[in-house]
Design a protein around this nucleic acid. Structure first.
Lengths: 329, 329
DNA sequence: ATGAAAGCGCTAACAG
DNA sequence: CTGTTAGCGCTTTCAT
């Protein structure tokens, strides 16, 4: 049987409440959602009647005149990535605290899917939370013309947003590796549509130059565990003694591949990830990585889109040294 | 500035389209969403005008008469649990494929929060996807009276649902441990509001009896990593040589605690988890666990709530043997 | 402080 | 095949 078909048993409306309470619908409405503009006596009476009848306001009907649903769309490139889970969690918590809810949209790293989500959801939500959006800036701008939005990890003209302090993280990573005696390092790039990837590439190269280190880059690699093998091969081929992966997923995949190859980590090659996802602390060896302000970012996005500007649009990220880095061979 | 305040620039309505196309609104409506009930010529014309004006139907307005939003609420006890991520992913994918979207609701293992979500979202969604709901059955029933719902891992009278084949999984776990020579096993229980926990407890005890094994249980333990230490202590105190945790989160926490204690796994004690979450294959030692049909379950929930009954409400779960189990001391 | 009435944008009878 | 009209449930002027 199809539960979505057929008329649902009709619910108690505000008309029922008004009639039962012997007042006009407008009075009932005010008593319920605009107290203070009605006498205490009638307010209490209407509320009591509503309670007794089991009245629950129809939020679609509420939304039609106001245009506000209290729903926000959270658009994510890849739900599978554990990194994004922190973001979902932060956003959900902050939204719930403000009485809002999130509509989840997974764009599967596909710009077209992402844009389709924006179009589909536009008339339904009060705003968009865009996590590292992949679509071209002009197309995003066109679709978001009449909708508030906040963006994580991608500066977009005219849209508020927060970003990870990638430069600070890269500086710490490079300094750490230089101190451990590495002379040649390689960056295993992530998706080419990722702004964060470009930033990591740029800042790692710059800091490597400062320290007089040789720098190479490989990729782009998809941000998934399975990229580990090809990324590791490409990284090793550069002759680097330290491999810095775009994120922990790739880094853990790299560790697994190196283990299969019998290559000692960190003895022969060091590995660094990014995001400090669940699992990074107990993989083998435990992964040196940089933290991601994911949960913070999720909260900040909700704040931004609801009009509360955060103090600082640059969110902290810092190095966590674990077993996967060590002195160069 | 506050993006949510102030009137949004008003959008193109179907009236605009109808006027511009020189037809009645009903004709425009039919041309756009009920083709075949209008001449091909006017259809094409209206569509062209709509396109030119950049018309996008207002989904709230569409939803008001029909009562259908195409939104489904996914209610989860704990977003943090990586196990649930598979479920979210499966549900999102299946919903998206059918042109629906998901509203995310995290009840944080709290029955009151769960019920509050149902109340808040009821008038907004076409149905509920309940993942291991924690609230009392009668309260759930009362709130879901007029809303379709599908449930994962908790049989609820009158509601369609799917469950994991916990009995089969338990049978395999116990047989595996018996074959490895364990004579006394302990189950580290999960949340007391979890139906799955009760089932695992019951079936593990039954199969242990079949095999002539001694069986003990400890807990309830919250289903988080930090439960690992107390759960491990309680489990060891039972004198068991094999500890079966409610889920992988607890199991991995147990592994970490045993490592700190210098207790050899699986030499001195074996550890088994459940769900086969991300990380289970590369923790130390890799965790023997049972798979969870999470993604499948997510898809099945969407199918159920949209009226497509799945073939079998019992979803497969099977043992994956890794390094954390071995012969008893 | 309260009531009457209009309108949010769309769909679905009901006519023609 | 197309136009007219009512109505989904609620909020909000505008009167009183």
């Amino acid at each position: 049987m199809d539960h979505t078909d057929g008329p649902r048993p009709r619910a108690v409306t505000i008309y029922d409440v008004a009639r039962e309470a012997g007042v006009a619908t407008s009075t009932a409405s005010r008593a319920l959602s605009n107290p203070g503009r009605v006498s205490e006596r009638t307010r209490a009476h209407v509320v009591a009647v509503a309670e007794r009848l089991g009245y629950v306001p129809n939020r679609i009907a509420q939304a039609l005149p106001s245009g506000r649903t209290g729903l926000f769309a959270l658009v994510i490139p890849d739900i599978t990535n554990p990194h994004h889970v922190g973001l979902i969690r932060g956003a959900e918590a902050q939204a719930a605290a403000a009485g809002h809810s999130l509509v989840l949209a997974d764009s599967q790293e596909d710009a077209a899917v992402e844009l389709a989500h924006l179009r589909r959801l536009a008339s339904f939500v009060d705003g968009f939370l865009l996590v590292s959006p992949r679509a071209p800036a002009d197309e995003l701008a066109a679709l978001l013309h009449r909708h508030p939005a906040a963006v994580f990890n991608r500066p977009l003209a005219g849209l508020p947003g927060v970003v990870t302090d990638i430069d600070a993280a890269s500086a710490q990573v490079v300094r750490h590796l230089a101190e451990r005696g590495h002379r040649r390092i390689a960056y295993l790039r992530g998706p080419d549509t990722s702004w964060a990837d470009g930033e990591r590439h740029r800042t790692l190269a710059a800091h490597a130059a400062e320290h007089g280190l040789e720098f190479a880059a490989t990729g782009h690699h998809p941000a998934v565990l399975d990229s580990g093998a090809p990324a590791a091969e490409a990284g090793l081929a550069t002759g680097a003694t330290a491999l810095i992966a775009f994120n922990d997923l790739i880094a853990i995949g790299v560790l697994q591949h190196l283990e299969r190859l019998g290559i000692d980590v960190p003895g022969r090659v060091a590995v660094v990830g990014a995001d400090d996802v669940f699992g990074a602390s107990f993989c083998h060896p435990p992964l040196t990585t940089v933290t991601s302000p994911a949960e913070l970012a999720g909260r900040a996005l909700v704040d931004l889109v609801t009009g509360t500007a955060p103090d600082d649009p640059v969110l902290p990220s810092e190095l966590v040294v674990r077993g996967s880095t060590g002195p160069a061979r």
